[in-house]
Design a protein around this nucleic acid. Sequence first.
DNA 1: ATGAAAGCGCTAACAC
DNA 2: GTGTTAGCGCTTTCAT
Lengths: 341, 341
Amino acid sequence: MAVTIRDVAKASGVHISTVSRTFSAPHLVNPETRTRVLATAEELGYRPNRAARALITGRTHNIGLIVADIANPFFPPMIKAAETHARRRDYHVFVADTDEDPVVETDLVRALAKQVDGILLCSPRMSDDQIEQLRREVPLVVVNRLIDGLPAVVMDVGAGARSAVRHLVGLGHRHLVYLSGPRGSWTNREIRRAAGVAARAGGAELTVLGPHQPVSSAGADAAEAVLATGATAVLAYNDLMAIGLLQSLQDRGVAVPEQISVVGFDDIATSALVRPTLTTVANPTAAAGRAAVDMLLQQGDDGATGQVTLRTDLVIRNSTGPGPYAPAGATTAQVAAYAKE
Amino acid sequence: MAVTIRDVAKASGVHISTVSRTFSAPHLVNPETRTRVLATAEELGYRPNRAARALITGRTHNIGLIVADIANPFFPPMIKAAETHARRRDYHVFVADTDEDPVVETDLVRALAKQVDGILLCSPRMSDDQIEQLRREVPLVVVNRLIDGLPAVVMDVGAGARSAVRHLVGLGHRHLVYLSGPRGSWTNREIRRAAGVAARAGGAELTVLGPHQPVSSAGADAAEAVLATGATAVLAYNDLMAIGLLQSLQDRGVAVPEQISVVGFDDIATSALVRPTLTTVANPTAAAGRAAVDMLLQQGDDGATGQVTLRTDLVIRNSTGPGPYAPAGATTAQVAAYAKE
DNA sequence: ATGAAAGCGCTAACAC
DNA sequence: GTGTTAGCGCTTTCAT
């Protein structure tokens, strides 16, 4: 069996409670004793058993991170940032994938509840009611979704959508398509709404297509439908769909951005690797992961249930260009400024 | 506080051990009692505390998954598959990221050791000795690296490299470059060695460049050096580097595959999304994740320390084409067969 | 400053 | 088939 507190106590000639104190309340133990205990512990390779500690303190020093799809490139940077941030604060992270299934989400929260001090729910697909229910069973921070009274970290996708639409309208586009994401996605609803408002304000028409799975093949499959609308610009729920559409259009001989402009969402790594490079709304996913961890860990201290909104940024690359109503001689660079207003 | 076994016992009028048995050894309890206990447990929302159980059984039903870099697209499909597979077997998964740092790896294994039944070490960068040492402290399965006597799951990257080189030689290339990956990578050494042997066998020269970080910018930065060698084909350590190189070459006006052929490794999702689409050696990362989990969970049962090698597959796409010594009229399709030999 | 003792939630002999 | 008891590794009063 592994080395326990008892072994260290015996080897250093003190009671186990002294060893315990050496690790959990060092200031309460005589410096000399402490040094000795630490030395034997080191020598024996002793490491406190967190689970046993949790049993009595009620704090596991673990957190859960539940995401819709680990393999969706949107999430890994967030997972990485959250894990690194948590570990720096001496927390370990359970990661679980729901495969976009709301039922799995609920089960997972319950299954993890006892082993963690709190759970980060990223882009949950379940209903508000379900989330509120779970909130009573375990501390929760929701990422990418805003629910009254629940601590949350969201990106300002509404502002991002507005920037994107203004950018397109400024380029002279008057008929846009929004390629919807999955049902149940808060982000999707926000983008669609904000894009609609911004389009109306800009005197442009917005056709909504979908819902779609947030994958590149869905974007590729939507090419026909997009062309059928006669629109000259497309805003997609995420970069994956935008890239699928981008390549599918080009494979059909439709030039991007000459004939159709395409804007994505997220700014995943791939977006800078495809040609044309993708104009997209950058989401600060890593910062969101860190903020969510902080919020979760603070939740224990006070009862504050803050909601943080992180800003998004339109990244103008080469998949967007002048539309049919472009002011004479307008260039992408010129209208870029407009979107910033 | 949460509901415990004692609450259920009281509410259903039995002793706590009966409740315990109801969950851990149902066949030992009277069907009627069992039904009643289960009902009250359900009603009260009781869920066994795994940490408390682990304290006495010694089995946590958790596993650790340590990867070099969560954000590297090579890993997420593996993490996802491993997590899903583990959960299906009622195991939860700690995920941690070492940022390619061998010191962090060691610390992480030790920190996680007490909370898990075993650890999956993916693409570890530390030395064989260190890994063997850790192996004594906690059950380990190593992925993407072969060490004598240690249970491991690897992909047959040597065979993959040979296929790739034969493919290129068959296309008429006689001077190849291997773009090395990170120092400490077993996969990198294997590919380099196998590529060297295959090149020699095919009467071709192989120039090795590197080491490099396994990221796209490293591939892009290597473009000058690649051109300077005068080689007509490049095999890269991974797809990210291959894609970086691919785009950097094209941005410099060097046509791919007309002037230079490029082959990657891994077959990450992005490889099918860039243009030209990337010829690459597909790694069964998801299968590797599942196999590693199985191996880890079986390790407890018997002491078997198997080593599994998963086959790789050359996926021929559009980034490779005829070289200067191509047989007249040779097409990519024709020589594809050659690589399969 | 240190030791003694109780107990966190649970399982595993051992009785009956 | 069920209750009793001890104890997993640790923290936390309470004494001393």
